[in-house]
């Protein structure tokens, strides 16, 4: 089955859909968690600590977190590799452009590839910034995420990178969620409007929810 799926353009698209939905699920949880920044340093840092103790005593300290990280890394890699391979195939299948150009599909549809690349770069920067602290502005403090978030969003470039990436995320999900439903065979004529509405709501909610954090820091509501 794995061979059949990976060797087929339809199968590889399924890999994209499933990995995309896994990441989407994670992002909903991540966004809700981030909003705790509005309730002060104590609550936010306690939440971050709890993430490391989930599942205890069955799980050891940080085991659950690492499990989630492994699943996410697999999802990101599978998604990006399939996207790269499918895109190469698509470009090769249509080498000659028409002389007479006509207006193309919607913005969200056209930006899936570049939007995806932006998201990939963002994920790397984001981890180096707030997880490992490698490129963090100011002294990165392990276990003090509230202060770290404040530091990042006190720089202009931190805000710009973050907000651009979240707008790209919104567009990606807008086309991606509906696409995944079609890829997995869950779409239908009667369900089409509902799926598009859910895609728009998810895109809007995630973009607004994530951007609320830098906006909070910039306006001084979070300090």
């Amino acid at each position: 089955m794995a061979r059949t799926v990976w060797d087929s353009s339809v199968g590889k698209k399924t890999v994209m859909a499933v990995s995309g939905l896994i990441m989407l699920l994670y992002l909903v949880a991540h966004m809700i968690g981030n909003l705790k920044i509005y309730f002060g340093a104590e609550e936010f840092n306690r939440y971050a600590h709890w993430l490391r103790t989930v599942g205890e005593p069955f799980m050891h300290y940080e085991w659950t977190l690492w499990l989630i990280r492994v699943v996410l890394v697999v999802a990101v890699v599978a998604h990006a590799v399939s996207a790269y391979q499918l895109s190469r195939r698509d470009i090769k299948a249509r080498p000659d452009k028409y002389v007479h150009k006509k207006p193309r599909a919607s913005y969200a549809t056209r930006t899936m590839r570049w939007g995806g690349v932006i998201l990939g770069l963002f994920i790397v920067w984001h981890i180096l910034d707030l997880t490992t602290g490698t490129v963090h502005p100011g002294g990165f403090q392990e276990g003090r995420p509230y202060q770290n978030v404040l530091d990042t969003f006190s720089t202009w470039y931190g805000n710009v990178i973050y907000i651009v990436a979240m707008l790209a995320l919104g567009l990606h999900i807008r086309h991606g969620f509906w696409s995944a439903a079609q890829t997995l065979g869950a779409g239908s004529r009667t369900r089409d409007r509902a799926l598009k509405t859910v895609a728009n709501i998810l895109a809007l909610l995630l973009t607004a929810g994530f951007i609320a954090v830098p906006v909070g820091v910039m306006t001084g509501v979070v300090s």
Partner: peptide, 24 residues
Amino acid sequence: FGGCTLTGECATACPKGIPLVSIT
């Protein structure tokens, strides 16, 4: 042939009105 990115151009062009949801 390439793969589907669900742009819907095919169904718009089809003279026989085969709908995009056929691909689904």
